[in-house]
């Protein structure tokens, strides 16, 4: 598939939804295009500006409570542009607060239940205690993706509607905090609680998003040896964390 224009990677409201290095996801997408001699450009949509319909990938990142509420208002105001872009095949990748905003409702500070974008059937409530630590996700088989590594840090409990597919099954950590799964997976739309950020740690996931935009054939191999070393180290570390957690649970159950 050839394109007559650069891939436009949109970093939506980075001042509001950029608390956890979310910019890294945009940098990785742009750079992985360039390494394949595919033109790409990082488009920052400043908070307060309308979100344009002309982007190929929309990145919604993580953010603090108040920032999330502000971001939600801006995103809902640009709902028509987002719908139009998606109708033309644009991709949405959302992390943490961004994932919550894909759903119908989320819980803001003070227990207020507010509207999200409603792009998929999921809803989020605050849970007892923050979920913090290394997180490992075995992705849904349909994606063909290898195991995913990340770091989660959130207080949300996200419930998927009937028939909605999660991104994968959590093997270490908590992910959505409900039903042992993480994130959400739909056509040209993917959400997760994984920071790290997710795409630097999981180049295959970055390429999965790019394949939606460019087609599989465009994605010639890239030398990922350095990232593979990082992934091996992180997965090893997470397995130790996971073992420790299981041992703790076992002791708790006995006691």
């Amino acid at each position: 598939m050839t394109r007559d224009s650069a891939v436009r990677v949109g970093l939506v409201f980075p001042e509001l939804l950029g608390t956890y290095g979310d910019r890294g996801n945009a940098v990785v997408l742009v750079e992985r295009c360039r390494r394949r001699a595919i033109e790409a450009e990082l488009v920052e949509v400043a908070a307060g500006e309308p979100i344009p319909a002309s982007l190929d990938i929309y990145l919604f990142g993580g953010g603090e409570d108040d920032a999330q509420v502000m971001a939600a208002a801006g995103m809902c105001a640009s709902r028509l542009a987002i719908d139009a872009a998606r109708a033309h095949g644009a991709v949405v990748f959302a992390v943490c607060a961004g994932l919550q905003l894909l759903g119908s409702t989320y819980e803001a500070s003070g227990g207020r239940i507010l509207d999200g974008l409603g792009l998929v059937d999921l809803s989020t409530r605050s849970g007892d205690g923050r979920l913090i630590g290394e997180c490992v996700v075995q992705p849904d088989a349909s994606t063909g993706l290898p195991i995913l590594t990340g770091f989660e840090n959130h207080g949300g409990r996200t419930t998927l509607g009937p028939g909605v597919t999660p991104l994968g099954r959590v093997t270490v950590g908590r992910g959505n905090g409900v039903d042992g799964v993480d994130g959400v997976l739909a056509d040209h739309l993917l959400g997760t609680y994984l920071h790290g950020p997710a795409l630097p740690r999981n180049p295959a996931l970055a390429d999965h998003l790019l394949a939606w935009v460019l087609g599989e054939d465009a994605l010639t191999p890239i030398d990922d040896q350095l990232v593979d070393r990082l992934r091996a180290e992180r997965l090893h570390d997470a397995q130790l964390t996971g073992l420790a957690a299981r041992r703790r649970d076992w002791h708790l159950n006995r006691g």
Binding site: G18, Y20, D22, G24, G133, F151, N153, G196, P197
Partner: peptide, 8 residues
């Protein structure tokens, strides 16, 4: 414990 900030 989360070095995600490296990207900021």
């Amino acid at each position: 414990r989360d070095p995600s900030w490296l990207w900021d």
